[in-house]
Simulated assay, not measured.
Amino acid sequence: MKVGIAKLGAIGSAVLLEYCLDELAMREDIETFVVSSGSKIRVEIIEEIEKRDFDLKIVTCPNAEKFLKNIDLSGKVIVITDKASKDWLNNLSWGYVVVKADSMIGARREFLDPTEMTIYNSDLLKVLAVTGVIRLLQYEINKALKKDDYLPRVVVDYNTAVKFAGFCNPYAKAKAIASYVIAERVSKITHKACFAERDAEKYVTLCATAHEMMRIAGMLADEAREIEKSNDTVLRTPHSKSGEILKKIGLYDVLI
């Protein structure tokens, strides 16, 4: 199976997406082709996956409704984004995964440099991984590849995310929910900082506030996983060579 991925701009869910489909580089049933427009959102790069033959096409884009509403793609398509209206999603012929916690970064020049950008995304990736978002993407994309008539239509809130996380300890689950909720609310702060506030001191402070929130979200996610590790109840779902998703919980358990 051939998967074409077009990455427009930057969302956390896109950073390691192709690696999450073949984390051991051992799957014999899948090939991936990835194009990216970098930090800029350039919709014309979608042509690179449209002119090739893929079993599944994936487009990742922040605020997909704004940038993809006039885009046509043939075949099976999944769009992964951070926000979209119900009306747009209801009329969309593609599959979709909307990750509410995949919040916009504090993109102000006086605040954001490459170091700050990397730290923010490392915290965000931890939130997405521990709370279940990465596993949700793993399962939904695999299901779309295996079933001809299936495309995901999922808006990921904290309830949806933690179902895929597989927590055994209720305190770990509670910390993960707190992590997701905080990460989701970061976007309200960064949106105001980037687009509404004109006073430099105020918008720099808001950017810093949002990044501190994501740092705490990452810490809570880390604490949730540490609880599961201490109880030897960490869920692991690696791919087999044939692309099936295997499962184990105890560190020394056998994969099934």
Rank of each mutant, 00 (worst) to 15 (best):
E44W: 08
K247W: 14
A221Q: 01
Y171H: 15
A6K: 04
K173Y: 12
K146F: 07
K76I: 01
A172M: 09
S230F: 01
L151T: 00
K126Y: 00
T237A: 06
W88E: 13
V154A: 03
K86M: 11
P170Y: 05
A64D: 06
S122K: 11
C168R: 14
V15T: 12
H191F: 13
F195P: 15
R135M: 02
V254M: 09
V162A: 03
I80H: 02
A217G: 03
L251Y: 10
V155M: 10
E23Y: 08
S37D: 09
Y139F: 14
E244C: 05
F111H: 13
K202C: 04
A101L: 01
N169S: 14
V234Y: 00
F111I: 04
D199K: 15
I134S: 01
N91F: 10
H211F: 00
G243L: 05
A10L: 15
D232G: 04
T209Q: 10
Y96F: 10
N231Y: 10
D222C: 01
V181L: 08
M1Y: 09
A25W: 13
L151H: 00
P170G: 09
V3C: 09
T190D: 11
K247D: 00
S179L: 04
R52S: 14
G243V: 06
D29H: 13
T209Y: 12
E23Q: 13
D53Y: 06
W94C: 04
E18N: 13
E50A: 15
A210C: 05
G38D: 07
G12V: 01
S179I: 04
V43L: 11
E244L: 10
I49C: 05
S37V: 09
